[in-house]
Simulated assay, not measured.
Amino acid sequence: MTLPDQTLEQQVPAADLDAAAGLAASGELAVSPEAVAEAAAVTNEVAALARLYGEPLLKLPNDLYIPPDALEIFLDAFEGPLDLLLYLIRKQNFNILDIPMAQLTLQYLKYVDQIRLSNLELAAEYLLMAAMLIEIKSRMLLPQRQTELDAEMDDPRAELVRRLLEYEQIKLAAYDLNAVPQVGRDFIRTQIFIEQSLVTSWPDVTPVDLQQAWLDVMKRAKLVQHHKISREELSVREHMTGILRRLQSSRFVEFADLFDIAGGVPVVVVNFVALLELAKETLVEITQAEPFAPIYVRLAYSPA
């Protein structure tokens, strides 16, 4: 159904058309029937309320039903309460760091009352934000105590301002991302079929390429190596016996002389453990004459 075109260059009244048709029928006016039919069609086109399936509709049908929601017009679509608050702040040129809560809350509640009448589920999150605005407004209206004035109080609007600034930043970033060309929306990737040759062409290999490939194989082979650790059984008791035998032949033995450096770290460690066990069992004595003096080991003195 389309609206009639009201921009005709010339409109002829219906009475004049009927008079012209009568004169043409009596022969007093030389007008062709095609011209009269065309003039009548123009008259119907002007008087038509709408067009239904290409035909002019001169009057409304008696059984015409128009749903109430069919004439609703949404000029602004908001993504949520923060989007609505940001729209109201920018529209009224409010300072987002110093929001007049009374005016903003009043305008916000007017919008919430409108959407509550049509969509109650959508109004739930808006009502939650309305409660938050009313709470902030009430906190700002309450008188402050002297202790609160002495201690610097936080602005009740600080949390709301932080959320609005973060939302505006994300919204602007979303606009920038939407402006980036996208496949399927702004451009389409073309696919071109290229017929390849049936004859296989092999690349030429030079001696330098072969040498480089061999060096890479040798480099990978060096990375894969096996390290075997052999287990050597060392007895602490045997080393304890060896230390006692050595101390029996001499009265004092210097601490460093008790260790066999040529045997390696494991032998030295086990020998030291054996010496500690002997000292623990009070079989040997470890003495030192003065600080930083050599340390000596001897058999423990046992009275006869």
Rank of each mutant, 00 (worst) to 15 (best):
1 M>L: 09
8 L>Q: 11
14 A>N: 08
16 D>E: 13
25 A>R: 13
45 E>P: 00
48 A>I: 01
55 E>A: 14
56 P>N: 00
57 L>D: 00
57 L>E: 00
58 L>S: 01
62 N>K: 11
64 L>C: 01
72 E>C: 06
73 I>W: 04
75 L>V: 11
77 A>L: 14
79 E>M: 07
89 I>N: 05
92 Q>A: 12
94 F>M: 05
99 I>L: 11
100 P>L: 14
101 M>L: 10
105 T>Q: 10
106 L>E: 02
107 Q>K: 02
113 D>F: 01
115 I>Y: 09
115 I>W: 10
119 N>A: 12
120 L>V: 13
121 E>F: 06
123 A>T: 11
123 A>L: 09
125 E>H: 13
128 L>M: 11
130 A>D: 09
135 E>P: 10
141 L>C: 13
144 Q>D: 11
145 R>E: 12
151 A>W: 12
152 E>S: 08
157 R>K: 15
162 R>S: 15
164 L>I: 13
166 E>Y: 05
170 I>R: 12
180 V>D: 04
187 F>M: 06
193 F>N: 09
194 I>T: 07
203 P>T: 09
205 V>C: 00
212 Q>E: 08
218 M>Y: 09
226 H>Y: 05
228 K>C: 04
228 K>Q: 05
231 R>L: 03
235 S>D: 09
235 S>G: 07
239 H>K: 15
253 V>N: 04
253 V>E: 04
260 D>H: 12
261 I>M: 12
263 G>T: 07
270 V>P: 03
270 V>G: 02
279 A>E: 15
280 K>F: 10
289 A>C: 04
292 F>Q: 15
298 R>L: 13
301 Y>E: 10
304 A>C: 04
